[in-house]
Computed example of a mutant assay.
Amino acid sequence: MRNFTSDTAKKILANEINVETLLTQYPEYKQEVLNELRVLKSNHESNIVQAIIDKYTASAKMAKNKIMKSGMNETTVNAFLPHIIKARFAIYLLEQLNTAVAAANASDKNVKFNLWDGMILQKLLFRKGFERKPVSLGLFRLGWKLVMHKKILMPLVNQKGIYCFYSKPLIGELAKLIGGKSCLEIAAGDGTLTKFLNEKNVGCKATDDYSWQHYISYPEFVEKADAKTALHKYKPEVVLCSWPVPKNPYEKHVFQTGSVDMYIVIGTRNPAYTGDFDAYNNNGKFTMELNERLSSLIVPPSPENAVYIFRRIQK
Rank of each mutant, 00 (worst) to 15 (best):
Q213A: 14
V239L: 08
I162E: 02
I162D: 00
E223M: 09
D226A: 03
H232V: 10
W212P: 00
G179E: 10
P169E: 12
N198Q: 15
K235A: 14
T207R: 07
K235P: 04
D190W: 05
V238M: 03
T207G: 03
T207W: 11
H232N: 10
Y163R: 07
I178E: 01
Y210K: 12
G179W: 10
I171A: 14
C164R: 08
S167F: 14
G180M: 12
K195R: 15
A227K: 08
F221N: 12
I186R: 04
K228S: 08
K228V: 00
L170K: 07
S211W: 09
G189N: 04
K181S: 15
S211F: 12
G189K: 02
F196W: 10
D209Y: 07
A187Q: 07
P236V: 08
C204P: 03
T192P: 01
Y234N: 05
W212S: 13
A188G: 13
A188E: 02
L174M: 12
S217Y: 14
G191T: 04
A187I: 05
E199G: 05
E237L: 05
G161Q: 06
K200A: 15
E237P: 01
K200R: 14
S211Q: 13
A188I: 01
E237R: 12
A175P: 04
K160F: 15
T229E: 11
Q159R: 11
L240G: 02
G180V: 06
S217R: 14
N201H: 13
F165K: 01
K224I: 03
I162N: 00
K205T: 10
G172R: 05
V202L: 05
K160P: 01
K205W: 02
F165M: 13
T194L: 10
K233M: 11
K224Y: 07
N198I: 02
A230C: 06
Q159H: 07
Y210W: 10
G189W: 06
L177C: 09
P169F: 14
K176C: 11
V222D: 04
D208K: 05
I186C: 07
F165Q: 00
A187P: 03
D209C: 12
G161S: 12
N201P: 01
K160R: 13
I186E: 02
C164W: 14
K235T: 10
L197P: 00
A206D: 02
P219A: 09
Y163P: 00
K205C: 08
T192G: 01
D190E: 12
F196N: 03
C183E: 02
A230Q: 03
K160Y: 14
E223H: 14
F221R: 03
T207Y: 05
G179Q: 11
H232K: 15
E223A: 10
F196M: 14
V239T: 10
S211N: 10
I178R: 06
H232A: 14
K224F: 08
E223C: 00
L240M: 09
T229M: 09
I162K: 00
V222A: 04
L231C: 06
L193R: 00
I178W: 06
I186G: 03
K228Y: 08
F196I: 05
E185D: 10
K181I: 03
G172K: 08
K181P: 06
Y215S: 08
N201R: 15
D209H: 10
L197Q: 02
S182Y: 09
I216W: 08
Y210T: 00
G172F: 13
G189A: 07
V239A: 09
Y163S: 11
L231Q: 02
G191L: 09
E199P: 02
N201K: 15
V222H: 06
